[in-house]
Design a protein around this nucleic acid. Structure first.
Lengths: 238, 238
DNA sequence: TCAAAAGTGTTATCATTACACCCATGG
DNA sequence: CCATGGGTGTAATGATAACACTTTTGA
């Protein structure tokens, strides 16, 4: 059943860059191995064609679940890639999304004969299909920029976490050696968005306090702080 | 000459939200009046269909020049709008771009019988076609967020400007009463990105120093500052 | 009692805020 | 000589960076 138009049209796809942190605190992204041409056998971000009756974000979530089994995540639009030559099949414009998930709470479906799914450390990515390397670089840059001024990092951690885990997460995401422990703690605790929720146990050293992120308190502070920022006016990153 | 595909495809358009500041320091956006249906007679952002052999940004720049005469601007991708019902002609996905221009340095072509072009103060927008009100709100929110940490505001001002003009610009863009003059000046000058380039004349009060923005110096500072920010790690806006 | 990681005290320095005040010009 | 906007001094307060130190646990 062919579809005919007066003018030529690009195809539209969506792609999803899903970041996760594993138990060893390695930052990873989720890839699938392509079964079909072009780039059969190569790894790529999950994604596919947008259907005529669904929104872009809905398409991204549908493809993500179909291809990886992951659902119930908050995705955010990243960028739209539309260079004429980015897909050998012809003109394809792709709207990319990204998300942060807790690796343990979002199990990936088992690989089948038809499909292969896997988490890859961001420093050990295989060669990617299409322009997906560029999409990845856009995503990691966005993550690094965003993690500075919004507490999105908490979505990568388990429900309860220690300040050391949080610090390590920041060091990983930002790609930085070692933040000063004392100052990191003062900074985080001063924000007043963490609740103490217990103590570590079974470790061969002083057990750490466990914290959880208080999203409501964060949003409350955010509103008030926003007013203060308006008085101040400007604060270039220079 | 019809074009036929195996599966249905949305059409792809681009739209441009162009901000400018007029002589009375009013923040405006550029609109065109639609000649054709749908929404004939309504105002809308300049834009149109992407051609098969051009990139998205190129399409946006082409449409902008064709419809308004404005050229040589730096546009930046804003967001891609793709709700199934956003265009009554059928499924149309639109990639929106935005830019800041100096109103005097970018004259708009004269309105013709076929086309009507105009600048509208952001507080006096007419009813817009399609979902362009939503596109506008996304754009102004982005402008307000971005103006805080990147010196994009300078592109709205003339080459040489006074600190009072700059302060007024920030008050306008941020939609804020009155920033403290002393502190605004200290802040801006401490950044070390402005060059003194003369004095005002012909005003009935003490003439103000004129400044210009030193883009290279800014980029230099930016690189170094980036390293410092990495040491610091985190600074949520709360 | 030791290793390992958690967690704290403190100080010098810098940034921010909030006011009040002086300066140069044309009318 | 005054209205108008341009431009400065300063002091209290708070944030930041840097470093050394103490605490608690299991093995």
């Amino acid at each position: 059943m062919p579809f005919t138009y007066e003018y030529p049209r690009p195809a539209i796809t969506v792609d999803c860059v899903i970041f996760g942190l594993d138990k060893e605190q390695v930052l990873k992204v989720l890839l699938i191995r392509r079964a079909a041409e072009p780039f059969a056998g190569r790894w790529a971000f999950p994604g596919g064609f947008v259907q005529m009756d669904e929104g872009l974000e809905a398409a991204a979530l549908r493809e993500l679940e179909e291809e990886t089994g992951i659902r119930d995540v908050f995705i955010e639009q990243l960028f739209t890639f539309g260079q004429p030559a980015r897909d050998p099949r012809g003109r394809v414009v792709s709207v990319a999304y990204y998300a942060l998930v807790n690796l343990d709470q979002h199990p990936v479906k088992a690989a089948t004969d038809a499909e292969d799914v896997g988490w890859f450390g961001i420093d050990q990515l295989p060669q990617l299909a299409f322009d997906h390397q560029e999409i990845f670089e856009t995503a990691i840059a966005r993550l690094r920029a965003k993690v500075r001024y919004q507490p999105i990092g908490f979505e990568l951690l388990p429900e309860k976490f220690t300040l050391s885990q949080l610090q390590k997460l920041y060091e990983i995401v930002l790609g930085v050696r070692q933040l000063n422990k004392r100052n990191f703690r003062k900074r985080i605790l001063k924000m007043d968005v963490l609740n103490e929720v217990g103590k570590q146990s079974g470790v061969a050293h002083r057990p750490a306090t466990l914290y959880s992120f208080d999203k409501e308190r964060y949003q409350l502070h955010f509103k008030n702080r926003h007013k203060d920022l308006l008085k101040r006016g400007v604060d270039f990153e220079i």
